[in-house]
Amino acid sequence: MNNTILVVIAASAISYGTPLLFAALGELLAERSGVLNLGVEGMMLMGAVSGFWAVQTIGGPGWVVLLVAVLVAALVAAATSLIHAVLTISLRASQIVSGLALTIFAGASGLSSYVGHVASLGGQPARHEFAAIDVLGLKDLPIIGPILLHQNALTYLSWALVAVALFYLYRTRPGLHLRAVGESPATADAMGVNVTVYRYVHVMLGGALAGIGGAFFSLAITPGWLDGMTSGAGWIAIALVIFAFWRPELALVGAYLFGAFSSLGFTLQTRQVHLPPEVFSSLPYLMTIVVLVLVSTGWARQRLGAPASLGVPYVREER
């Protein structure tokens, strides 16, 4: 039963969806503060390359190395996002152009590739990787066993993060301030909330989560390093935030939907379904477009979700 195609697809959808979920949660937090960061792809690749570098370089027990690697990935990607934060928050640069610049800078033919070459990471077998955990020994439980109880630690972390994000946004004071900064920075400012600090913190938090998402590629899905190995996942994560109406719980749903599209080709090919591989490979991209169109046509609804000041720099002393 656990070998039926739907169960296999669902289990791998969660696996493929996890990096999307991390990146989308991060982007969601940044956008909630009013900063659009189109550099997710670049930040993910920086996380992927630095996480893999850490695993190959640091010695120690496997779980310690992996933990450190995830932290390294988060820190490096957060540092990358700092460039975007400085340019858009302090220097008032166009968020769109700066985000694109970040992806070009760090992306598939940018710094991540440079680092990979300098450290000769390409083609190395991974010394450690995140393996699926057999929770309570229940992985063979029908249906929910392989889907829910046989995933790796990062996936379980991502579930915890969704809960934390929900609690943070709607139940805590800083969460309220964050929403206010994205909704109406002038109001938040007049009320003594430091708009600049909130924006910096959440852009960098977004970077850190994107980095972990990237590390999921190099440490879990296909352990190793390859130039541009995230192949557009960062962009899909940005689309996911729109799809989720800027809400964490919907990001979870969306991530697994897109995870399913991403894993479909792989799963079907092993089942001897004969179609050109490009058809499957293009599925996540085409479905992203389709889903975005469906979400966008009800544009009044979309407006209700989007932070009102998204993309607009906040300047107090200007007339």
């Binding site: 004071r173 309220l176 301030h177 929403r179 206010a180 909704e183 109406s184 002038a186 109001t187 938040a188 007049a190 009320m191 003594g192 909330v193 209700l304 009102a308």
Partner: peptide
């Protein structure tokens, strides 16, 4: 008015407070 339109009255009052 410096009010966040999508927030409740109570949320607006405790903002930054």
């Amino acid at each position: 008015f410096r009010l966040a339109a999508s927030f409740t009255v109570a949320e607006n009052l405790v903002l930054g407070h």
